[in-house]
């Protein structure tokens, strides 16, 4: 018996954007970082754009595929780096979900893509820090670096938010049609 899978339109869209996000993820892993754990997280821009155009479930697919496939390419699959990346992605998706629910409650004055980027970035960083503190380095001295990490998350989240908003405005129609 021949098993045939025909991808529907949404599958194709998810695959395309996931590929884009994976590309950014892998390129970003080549960037040197002054402090381990701090990186721009530009791949999240793709997650946000997909969320704006297709909603939460497509965005979570793109985000999780990005983390899993990205780690396979970089070679960190199932390593501590992957654990941090994966849990960060899960919690930042939860944050996105809550923001989505919040936005559905109010007709005006919603959280824009800018806020989403900042909140997701902070949630991601806080989760990673918590996991490092609880499982990998349970030492009080580690807390000294938390303010720096959260500042980095805030700054990069804001930068990503601005970029995401610009891209969203300029390419809204193209993103919607799935021809990235």
């Amino acid at each position: 018996m021949l098993l045939k899978i025909t991808p529907d339109r949404e599958d194709v869209v998810i695959a395309r954007f996931a590929a884009l996000a994976i590309g950014i993820h892998v390129l970003e892993s080549l960037l040197p970082s002054p402090v381990p754990g701090i990186k721009p997280g530009f791949a999240n821009i793709i997650t946000l754009l997909v969320f704006m155009a297709y909603g939460f479930s497509a965005a979570s697919w793109v985000s999780i595929l990005r983390v899993v496939v990205g780690s396979l390419i970089v070679g960190t699959f199932l390593s501590p780096t992957f654990v941090l990346s994966f849990s960060g992605a899960i919690v930042s998706l939860l944050m996105l979900y809550w923001c989505d629910r919040f936005n559905r409650l109010f007709a005006v004055d919603k959280l824009s893509i800018f806020s989403l980027a900042i909140l997701m970035s902070m949630a991601h960083m806080a989760t990673q820090f918590l996991i490092v503190y609880v499982f990998f380095i349970p030492h009080k001295a580690l807390l000294d670096i938390l303010p720096v990490m959260m500042t980095a998350a805030l700054v990069f989240g804001a930068i990503n938010g601005v970029i995401a908003r610009k891209v969203h405005k300029a390419h809204e129609v193209r993103i919607k049609s799935g021809t990235s």
Partner: peptide, 16 residues
């Protein structure tokens, strides 16, 4: 920035 955005931004800066 919407009203909600400003609140989020201020809260995040205060938290940090």
């Amino acid at each position: 920035l919407t009203w909600a955005d400003k609140v989020v931004l201020i809260l995040c800066v205060l938290l940090t």
